[in-house]
Design a protein around this nucleic acid. Structure first.
Lengths: 197, 197
DNA sequence: CCTGCCACTTGACCTATGTCAAGTGGCATT
DNA sequence: AATGCCACTTGACATAGGTCAAGTGGCAGG
């Protein structure tokens, strides 16, 4: 069927964890809204309440916050086949402190929070799907905390390279510096000293 | 029934999210194993594979890792009514880099990973229960990352006090210093400068 | 009442990383 | 070819927080 074309990636992702009948597939897709974002366009802005999750079918986004001095700190990087949202805001219904912004042209399938609740009611197996994804995301998040607490900047950069190999090239040094938690100037010096070693 | 006495706290916790019949309650409890830990006893040691979750009915535990210089870095603090596990190890079946240790005498109800799978099969609503808990834990974890990235040590301490008010007193300065990511010496100086201000 | 021990404090010094401002060098537009 | 822009680099300096080792002061056990 033509209507499911743009949904292939998400259906494959879902199929890794739970099986859906044809009717369930149709219902699930009916709750999703496809949306394109151009580079630097926002999926979410600070102050808004995050009431949807986005599944990326192409492109790449970052979520970040700005501190008092307007320095950008990247919290997450998400690429095709990943869900992204401000969980803090989504789960506790609080205003978001994050910006979520497309780093390159990006296509996303949006699922609103109320629609997700409907989905859970109609197809309870989606509880399992999201449980599994969230447990993984949580595990990765915990790892990030231990990295920040226990590793120096150079080692955090190694970790970044390992985990984001495929997409490291689409990020400027500034972005990477922000993700690993150092300034661009320091990161530049760090790279230089690595090259000569 | 006498047999469910020690299970009251966890049943109340579960009841906040899903309703269980009497039979389901009995089955759920049959998968749990109660265990006492004395102060400084380990629930999990580095190198082991974490194959269970622990629900605390009393007491307090910390999870931490040791870096190359044997400095302790506290990842999480858990108190009564919280689940604790090394999700990194539990989810990906990798050897744990964490220690989980009782900070005071603690009682836990243990649920092994295979038993949890059985639970999901027999009572699928537990998928929802754990989805909700994990989403909250993930949201809190994300917040911790943004705190570490964007706030100076003194502000991270404020956050700690806000979030762990009730139990802050059971932690030594060393533990708190480790949680917020500074050395005991620096933390001591920080407190002094706060007092005089 | 001593003795140890343990948490905490403090001083002197050190280092990783930040700040700010002035380059440099591509590369896209005209 | 000139222009401008943007990412990156670099120098000089500043600072948050670390290190190590020597106190101090409770308080628990004998």
């Amino acid at each position: 069927m033509k209507m499911t074309t743009g949904y292939e990636p998400i259906l494959q992702n879902v199929a890794k964890h739970i099986a859906l009948s044809e009717g369930e597939t149709t219902f699930f897709c009916s709750l999703l809204q496809e949306r394109q974002y151009h580079k630097k366009e926002y999926l979410l802005r600070e102050g808004g309440i995050c009431n949807q999750l986005a599944f990326l079918t192409s492109g790449c986004v970052k979520s970040y916050l700005l501190d008092q001095k307007s320095n950008e700190h990247i919290l997450t990087i998400a690429i095709a086949d990943w869900w992204v949202a401000d969980y803090q805001s989504l789960v506790f219904d609080t205003p978001s402190e994050l910006f979520i912004e497309a780093v390159e042209p990006t296509t996303a399938l949006l699922l609103t929070k109320p629609d997700r609740e409907i989905l859970f009611t109609r197809i309870p197996r989606f509880e399992q799907y999201f449980r599994i994804l969230t447990e993984r995301a949580f595990a990765v998040s915990q790892q990030r905390i231990t990295d920040i607490l226990s590793l120096p900047a150079a080692a955090r950069y190694e970790q970044f390279l390992r985990r984001y190999q495929r997409i490291a090239a689409s990020f400027s040094q500034q972005q990477i510096a922000s993700f690993i938690g150092v300034t661009p100037a320091f990161f530049s010096r760090m790279l230089k000293s690595k090259r000569s070693s």
